[in-house]
Simulated scan of single mutants.
Amino acid sequence: MFLHSARHADGVIFLNDDGLTQAVQEAGAVELLLVRHGESEGNVAATEARLAGAEVIDVPARDADVNLSGTGQEQAKALGIALARIAQEFRPDAVVSSPYARARQTAEIAVEAAGWPAEVRTDERLRDRELGILDRLTRLGVEKRYPDEVERRSWLGKLYYRPPGGESWADVALRLRSVLNELNNLGNGHRVMLVCHDAVIMLFRYVLEGMSEQELLDLAADTAILNASITRYVRPSGAGPWTLESFNVADHLAEQGVEVTEHAGDTSVHPR
């Protein structure tokens, strides 16, 4: 009987001529740490613009080049001090960051503070969602300049709305699925830390836990991913589904007297 193979998140699935399936599990990573970058100059500028009733966010650089704020640097160092407490045999053997400056700086500062020998690598699939024509605009700015987009976004909801020139959350989820597929092929026993962005962490949860659209949007409406927070998934066998062990933990910042900051995106996420 001739077998055709296709990739699946949990291994290789073989489809035979009768439509039957046989799964062959592959060894992959056993632990996944998801870290949001520390507070950025863009986070601060967006909050100031919103409070001032401005239409445009006065960011100092393009999104990929926005640096950590002073507070963000302190958060990254505190994160590293907390990571240093992890026993050597349980430390991540790979640290991969979004190439955006705020994430890369968080990873580099944290790894140095932790005293880890790990090299920080970057992967563009971990970058923040691209906003297209809505980039640098506050919610007020979008309402004033692109009312048709506000209506379209309200109709479609956050998961499927794609601004012209930008990405939907579903687009981001697609690139994250390929990242997770690679984690399934690393070989058993690997532990990985990914440093990325708030929407990316939300969408990792969506993919890893098989959430519905409603479950994802309910979570996004009520939860802000804290700067320099840690979310942890485990699967001791190195195969199959992941288990969420902790989510959005930033206790390590408060313990060290570092400000805990909450810079959430637009919480109007459900279709109407």
Score class of each variant (00 low, 15 high):
N227Y: 02
K144G: 07
V249Y: 03
R125Q: 10
R177P: 02
D251W: 13
R102F: 02
M1R: 05
R136H: 06
R152I: 00
E167Q: 10
L176D: 02
E41T: 05
A82Y: 09
R7G: 07
T261A: 07
I109W: 02
T261D: 03
L194I: 08
V120L: 04
N16I: 02
R50L: 13
I57A: 01
V207L: 09
W155R: 15
G11V: 01
N43V: 01
D266G: 07
A114R: 10
A64R: 13
S40A: 10
E112P: 04
T243E: 15
P163V: 09
H8M: 07
P271F: 02
R272K: 15
V120W: 04
L253E: 07
G189P: 02
D65V: 08
L34T: 03
A78Y: 09
A6T: 15
F90V: 05
L226P: 03
A228T: 11
S154K: 15
M1P: 07
E41W: 02
R145Q: 15
A23R: 15
R104I: 09
I109M: 11
H190Y: 08
L194S: 07
P236R: 12
G72F: 02
A224D: 03
L34I: 00
S5D: 12
Q105R: 14
L131V: 05
V207T: 03
L176T: 01
V56M: 13
V192P: 05
S154D: 14
N184Y: 00
S97N: 13
L34C: 04
A52K: 12
L3E: 13
P241A: 12
V111S: 06
P92A: 05
F2V: 13
L83N: 02
P92E: 08
G210R: 08
G42P: 04
A239P: 00
E89K: 13
A61Q: 10
V12R: 11
A6D: 12
G187L: 03
V111G: 04
L156H: 11
E74T: 06
Y233H: 09
A239G: 11
G38T: 05
L226F: 09
L83A: 07
E130V: 13
S178F: 06
D266Y: 12
A221V: 00
N227R: 03
T261V: 14
P164W: 04
S168G: 04
H4E: 15
S168V: 00
P99T: 11
M202C: 12
R145Y: 09
L33K: 06
A173D: 01
A224R: 09
N43T: 02
G165C: 02
T122A: 08
L180H: 13
E108M: 13
E143T: 10
D58A: 15
G28Y: 00
A27G: 13
A64H: 15
A239Y: 08
R272F: 14
V12T: 12
L217F: 06
A254P: 03
A87D: 14
S154C: 07
S5G: 03
W155V: 13
R139N: 13
F204R: 01
A114Y: 10
G132N: 04
A118K: 05
E245G: 00
T231Q: 01
S229I: 01
A45P: 04
D148T: 08
G80L: 08
H197N: 09
M202H: 14
Y233R: 01
D58I: 05
T106E: 01
R129I: 06
S97D: 07
G141K: 10
G70A: 13
E26F: 06
E215Q: 15
D128M: 01
L140M: 12
L3P: 09
H197F: 05
A221C: 11
